[in-house]
């Protein structure tokens, strides 16, 4: 109600706060209350709690061998999984957009499964598949002697599963909107198909590939439900960082748990920032 009084202020030097559509204050109020109480204040706790340890304590808490191993594993496995997903996701997106074959529609629909399946369900399903007696685990063990479930390989496999649709679904619309005439032009200029793909198509997709990679990576770093069943959770070997948070909480080491969480967020931020910068350079390079 005081809102209209402010608007009538005749001595205003700045733009009059007239808004064409009414209802701004109410909706912004609800939004801030909602976002503040559910996301902002809680995340503030994550930033402030580790400070209780003091700089030295924080350093010790994070340079603990077990913490370092867990962070290395989480980030390394996430990176590897997203990297393997890149060609796989490109293949699936390409098949959906460019190819016509029986089952294409089913493939398109199935691509969202990792989004739709609750992580705990995915976790036990992937474990059952890759266990030494599983549909995939048994032949891999027999043929190559590979152990997937309860090893680091299993973690990467689970993270590949959750990350795959991020890459394929990011690529899909870009691939669909990509004009075919660039490829036709390349062909008229005498380029072979392979040259066209390598020099025309791939560079055009590169920024999108990076976006997909970043999304898959960000999701994989924090992934919990689909990993803990398949991981085996051996300290120093197959213990992921989110699990370490849970363990520290169970020991009532709140500040230590928050420190690991904060470190994860900070590291993710650095990786995503790097991807973003790389993308920007790519875009500028193309102009």
């Amino acid at each position: 109600m005081s809102a209209s009084a402010a608007a009538i202020d005749p001595a205003r030097g700045r733009a009059a706060p007239i808004r064409a559509v009414p209802g701004f204050r109410t909706s912004l109020g609800i939004t801030l209350l909602w976002a503040g109480s559910i996301v902002l204040i809680p995340l503030l706790a994550l930033v402030l709690r580790p400070l209780e340890l003091g700089p030295l304590g924080l350093w010790e808490s994070l340079t603990d061998e077990r913490v370092l191993a867990a962070l290395r594993l989480s980030f390394g496995a996430a990176f590897l999984a997203a990297a393997i997903d890149l060609p796989l996701g490109l293949l699936l997106a390409w098949a959906i957009v460019r190819l016509r074959f029986p089952g294409r529609g089913a493939l398109d629909a199935a691509l969202d499964l990792p989004f739709a399946l609750p992580t705990a369900v995915a976790g036990i399903a992937l474990t059952a598949l890759t266990a030494p007696n599983g549909w995939l685990g048994a032949p891999l063990m027999a043929m190559f002697g590979w152990k997937v479930a309860f090893s680091q390989a299993g973690i990467v496999f689970a993270l590949m599963f959750v990350g795959l649709p991020f890459i394929a679904r990011t690529l899909e619309p870009v691939l669909r909107d990509m004009p075919l005439d660039a490829e036709e032009a390349a062909a008229t200029l005498g380029a072979s198909r392979a040259q066209t793909l390598w020099r025309v198509v791939l560079p055009a997709l590169l920024p999108t590939l990076l976006t997909g990679f970043a999304l898959a990576f960000a999701r994989a770093v924090g992934e919990y439900g689909s990993v803990i069943f398949i991981a085996g959770n051996m300290p120093m070997v197959t213990e992921i960082a989110p699990l370490l948070i849970v363990i520290r909480l169970e020991q009532f080491d709140y500040a230590g748990a928050a420190a690991v969480g904060l470190a994860m967020l900070a590291l993710s931020f650095v990786v995503l920032l790097a991807v973003n910068l790389l993308q920007r350079r790519l875009r500028r390079g193309r102009l």
């Binding site: 204040i41 809680p42 995340l43 706790a45 994550l46 709690r49 992580t119 960000a218 999701r219 770093v221 924090g222 992934e223 919990y224 439900g225 989110p242 699990l243 948070i245 849970v246 909480l249 709140y254 748990a257 928050a258 969480g261 994860m264 967020l265 993710s268 995503l272």
Partner: peptide, 15 residues
């Protein structure tokens, strides 16, 4: 979307 679900739980335990 870019925060680990475990951290989502953690922040409320911290409070």
């Amino acid at each position: 979307f870019s925060v680990s679900p475990v951290i989502a739980g953690l922040v409320f335990v911290l409070i």
